[in-house]
């Protein structure tokens, strides 16, 4: 379901007709859900689920094939000492590193995500963005994390943002399209809700909070608004869209708060790596240490989990 047939006025009218989001209310709700106390079996299950939801990410100028291969190995077997530890959901890299990662992940079942479309700023001509996308897919990425043009969105040019998503979706072919809203730059929850709907209407398979490269990345209330959006979108259009908070999620405690948020907002249908991912890097090691604590009954130390 897309709105490509509608006029710019229709799209604007629709997005501005969405119910508003009260900042104080949404933050209070998120804060209340953050007080949920997840213990014992529930915690153990939540940790394994969170591991499976990690998009283990490296997006540095200094990334090398060696670094990426190490990351892939880690993603496939996060805890080499424990075969019961699940693999992560995906490895997420820059397009130039996709060939290396594709080789490393072959046959593992771990997905390969590539950022594209002139990540992180999105400030490049459309043709460049599409070429970026096609190259990543051709090299083996089965998930594309694109960025929207926040400038166009903030200027009210929703049609341009929508058209770009549609075009990238087409360029991505069968690869899953995650649309990064860069919510930290959208500034208001109303904009987060509108951008979520815009992306979903344009064909996004996932909506993702952030690049991880700006001051404000994933937060619980922003993710809450996005979970409400995917829930309502499915009610209206019958299509389920995934959610990926990214940036700043570093601890098991944080991750579990997100799982609670899913559970009590969008519902258990989203409690799966198919529909929810964490864009993270250091989170995985904290999950592993907590996992070890539950298994052994004593606290783990960073020297006992692998780097990368």
């Amino acid at each position: 379901m897309t709105v490509t047939a509608t006029t710019p006025v229709d799209l604007r009218a629709f997005l501005h007709g969405l119910p508003g989001v009260d900042e104080v209310g949404v933050e209070a709700r998120a804060a209340m859900l953050a007080t949920r106390s997840i213990k014992a079996d529930a915690k153990a299950a939540a940790i394994d689920l969170a591991v499976r939801m990690v998009d283990l990410t490296t997006l540095e100028g200094a990334d090398t094939p060696g670094k990426v291969r190490a990351l892939c190995a880690k993603g496939i077997r996060p805890d080499p000492t424990d075969p019961s530890c699940p693999s992560v959901g995906a490895i997420c890299v820059y397009p130039s590193m996709v060939p290396v990662a594709a080789a490393a992940l072959a046959g593992s079942g771990v997905h390969l995500a590539s950022v594209a479309t002139a990540f992180p700023s999105g400030q490049a001509p459309l043709e460049v963005k599409l070429a970026d996308t096609r190259a990543a897919v051709a090299a083996g990425a089965d998930e594309i994390d694109m960025v929207i043009s926040r400038g166009a969105f903030l200027a009210g040019d929703y049609r341009a943002v929508s058209d770009e998503i549609v075009a990238v979706k087409q360029a991505a072919g069968d690869a899953h399209l995650k649309v990064i809203l860069e919510t930290g730059e959208l500034a208001t929850y109303d904009n987060v809700r509108r951008a979520s709907w815009l992306a979903m209407l344009a064909g996004a398979d996932f909506i993702k909070t952030s690049t991880g490269k700006v001051a404000v990345n994933a937060t619980l209330p922003i993710t809450l608004v996005m979970l409400e959006a995917v829930r309502d979108f499915r009610d209206r259009h019958g299509r389920q869209v995934g959610v990926k908070p990214a940036g700043g999620i570093k601890t098991t405690k944080d991750a579990i708060k997100y799982l609670v948020l899913i559970n009590e907002t969008a519902g258990s249908d989203w409690l799966s790596p198919d529909w929810f991912r964490f864009g993270a890097s250091s989170l995985l090691n904290d999950l592993l240490m907590q996992r070890s604590k539950i298994a052994t009954g004593h606290y783990a130390g960073p020297d006992y989990v692998t780097l990368d």
Binding site: I38, K39, A42, V260, S268, L271
Partner: peptide, 8 residues
């Protein structure tokens, strides 16, 4: 399914 363990 995510059922919370008792947290008394």
């Amino acid at each position: 399914m995510f059922s919370y363990a008792p947290a008394p």
